[in-house]
Design a protein around this nucleic acid. Structure first.
Lengths: 307, 307
DNA sequence: AGAGTCCATAAGTTGAGGTTATCGAGGTGA
DNA sequence: TCACCTCGATAACCTCAACTTATGGACTCT
């Protein structure tokens, strides 16, 4: 069967009219072109050029083939450019599942930024709790999982990807806003909106309270920081909210205070060991880390509270 | 740049799962496949397979490339099949110019037959007198010319392609129909429809008359045999008509008689020396010759009237 | 433990596609 | 008409991508 190189030479001769000019354009010698043309003619089984008075004149058949070959060249260039783009991570498909804490606020921002230099990239974003993330990853339905708590699954590769902190958010003018730092004990005497003890965040905060010999008290139970934040924004009470939920949000009417003790969160990324991870996914992991490190301000951890 | 063979191997491995099966399908050895895959990976600049526990698992990037490559293969097969068809003359373009004598009746029949085994063929048919045929051929606007009289042009290749004869056509029951053979002298005493002396046919008939020491007489002058035939069909008179015009026509109400002397016509085909002639055009020439020889019955020429 | 499967590596072969050198045919201008 | 140019064809040789065979090490399954 005829190959692309042969068609390339054929087209060059038809276009430029002589073997010598075609050879020059193709950066090969004139006999190479001459031989190739003859070879293609034997492959095709009929003459592609008429030789008279030392000149080559393409036959209608040759012109017809050359025209069709253009589509082949186009497709060839297309494949080459796709490979190029896949190398640069500017094309392909990136499918992410994230917990709402990350997926609702910070992740769309990071993705938007990531897409600015990759307009052809195809993205899929889904939310789910940690177990669902693990399921979707091992079943190959998603490629990259992002969550605060580490998904536990033998077929997953989990690694820390970004840090965040819990801050205290209260309505502007609230009594807690009067102090520069909010001690967690104070929350027990305020209208405290907090997290179910089943949630990782709830357990973490419980731990901080119990380390001070206290028990966490709250009048409003939610599961996600975004929900708590919205309640605070509407003046319902005060809450501890992570910086992922705060990222880029308009905080008009609210006051933000560091807390004592500092509580650090570690976001994790997970990929399946059962499927190879795409280039884009790897790139996105680094991008996410870097973006968070640059855009989320952190309060230094106290020595007694390492991550 | 990546080539089709490399993509072919890549796709085979992705599709069949192992290098050994891919090698079998491609009819090459397993190391050939293994090396090719590694080579393509270095070309692409990123991994296409993940190697673990002695198995290859395609990356999302590899799958993406393989999918795009399918279009390339399709285009490649398309070019190959077009070449195949061009060899068989079942595709391409055939543009013909013919004089009305040939183009109005016999040619459409032959073309229809020719197309039966070449459904993809693109045909163009145009009518014109001999000078116009020559013009269109040397200007490259048409590829094949068909006419009775030979076009005279130094850039044309003209060759005889088919024979026809003049016959006498008269209304059924006409007195000329009473004789088995119509002697041309008899036409001078009938309502004779004939051809302008400027036309090749008129000159030819004039010659036959003068060889018998007579002058042709006619009451109705036309330029084409088709016109004469229609007039006879409507009972206007009698005429000498060539067998090309009669081919396949319903002769109800008309009588057909051989004439004395027998007058043979030679159809000619012409192609331009300035452009190569396509395969289909050459095939059509033979096809036309053969069709006419098989379908037009001829009366043997008398020895004194060679063509 | 042994057989069977997988992929990788090493070393050698082959042929498509290239090279240089040279030829003769044909056109062209002094 | 002769020198000079450009064209394509041919011959003889070269090179490397794409193969080969032979083999080895990793892993799985019975």
């Amino acid at each position: 069967m005829i190959n692309a190189r042969q068609l390339e030479v054929l087209c060059a001769v038809i276009e430029l009219g002589t073997t010598a000019k075609a050879a020059e354009m193709l950066a090969v010698s004139q006999p190479a072109v001459s031989n190739m043309i003859r070879h293609v003619e034997t492959l095709a089984g009929f003459a592609l050029f008429e030789r008279e008075r030392g000149r080559l004149t393409p036959t209608p058949e040759a012109r017809h083939i050359a025209q069709e070959a253009q589509h082949l060249f186009m497709q060839q260039r297309r494949v080459a450019s796709i490979i190029e783009e896949l190398r640069g991570g500017t094309t392909g498909r990136l499918s992410i599942v994230a917990t709402p804490s990350i997926g609702q606020r910070i992740l769309p921002q990071v993705i938007a930024q990531f897409l600015e230099s990759r307009p052809k990239l195809n993205v899929s974003l889904d939310l789910g709790h940690t177990d669902q993330i693990a399921n979707r990853l091992v079943s190959g339905q998603a490629e990259l999982g992002l969550s605060i708590s580490q998904p536990r699954h033998s077929a997953l590769t989990v690694r820390p990807i970004a840090k965040a902190q819990l801050l205290c958010v209260c309505p502007e003018g609230h009594e807690l806003a009067l102090s520069r730092v909010v001690r967690i004990e104070a929350l027990n005497h305020a209208r405290h909106i907090s997290y179910s003890s089943e949630t990782p965040l709830g357990q973490m905060i419980d731990g901080a309270f119990s380390r001070r010999g206290l028990e966490r008290r709250y009048f409003f139970e939610v599961r996600h920081t975004m929900a708590a934040l919205e309640l605070v924004a509407n003046g319902v009470g005060v809450a501890l909210v992570d910086t992922f939920a705060l990222a880029g949000r308009d905080l008009a009417g609210m006051a933000l205070r560091p807390i004592d003790p500092v509580m650090d969160l570690q976001a994790h990324s997970a990929t399946s060991k059962l499927f190879p991870t795409s280039n884009v996914a790897l790139q996105f992991q680094s991008f996410f880390s870097q973006y968070v490190a640059e855009h989320l301000q952190m309060i230094p951890s106290s020595p007694d509270n390492p991550i």
